[in-house]
Deep mutational scan, measured.
Amino acid sequence: VKVFRALYTFEPRTPDELYFEEGDIIYITDMSDTNWWKGTSKGRTGLIPSNYVAEQ
């Protein structure tokens, strides 16, 4: 598990995607895809765009 911080707010387009706000901490559990990672924030899990976060 790696810890990342959201650089921007992300509004999901599908139920599989995770909503998060700029500054949120996201725990990444799967980075197997280059563009979409699986992450958890505020008790919810979903896909996030990798270019919206920076490693802490």
Score class of each variant (00 low, 15 high):
1 V>F: 13
1 V>A: 13
1 V>H: 13
2 K>M: 11
2 K>E: 05
3 V>H: 07
3 V>P: 08
4 F>Y: 14
5 R>F: 14
5 R>E: 08
5 R>Y: 15
6 A>F: 02
6 A>L: 04
7 L>S: 04
7 L>R: 06
7 L>C: 13
8 Y>P: 00
8 Y>C: 15
8 Y>L: 10
9 T>W: 04
9 T>I: 04
10 F>E: 00
10 F>I: 04
11 E>N: 14
11 E>K: 13
12 P>N: 05
13 R>W: 05
13 R>V: 09
14 T>H: 14
14 T>L: 09
15 P>V: 10
15 P>Y: 07
15 P>S: 11
15 P>E: 12
15 P>T: 10
16 D>N: 12
16 D>L: 13
16 D>I: 08
16 D>C: 10
17 E>D: 09
17 E>N: 03
17 E>K: 08
18 L>R: 00
18 L>I: 07
19 Y>A: 14
19 Y>C: 09
19 Y>P: 13
20 F>A: 05
20 F>E: 00
20 F>T: 02
21 E>M: 09
22 E>I: 13
22 E>Q: 14
22 E>P: 06
23 G>K: 02
24 D>T: 04
24 D>V: 04
25 I>P: 04
25 I>D: 07
25 I>E: 08
26 I>T: 06
27 Y>S: 06
29 T>C: 13
29 T>L: 14
29 T>Q: 09
30 D>W: 03
31 M>S: 08
31 M>T: 10
32 S>N: 10
32 S>L: 10
33 D>E: 08
33 D>A: 06
34 T>C: 12
34 T>L: 14
34 T>Q: 14
35 N>F: 15
36 W>C: 07
36 W>N: 03
36 W>D: 01
37 W>K: 00
37 W>A: 01
38 K>F: 15
39 G>R: 01
39 G>E: 01
39 G>F: 02
39 G>P: 00
40 T>Y: 15
41 S>K: 04
41 S>P: 02
41 S>Y: 09
42 K>H: 12
43 G>Y: 03
43 G>N: 07
43 G>E: 05
43 G>F: 04
44 R>P: 02
44 R>Q: 09
44 R>E: 06
46 G>R: 01
47 L>E: 03
47 L>I: 09
48 I>G: 01
48 I>M: 03
48 I>K: 00
49 P>I: 04
49 P>H: 06
50 S>Y: 06
52 Y>R: 04
53 V>R: 01
54 A>Q: 13
54 A>G: 08
54 A>I: 15
55 E>R: 08
55 E>L: 13
55 E>C: 10
56 Q>A: 15
56 Q>H: 14
56 Q>F: 15
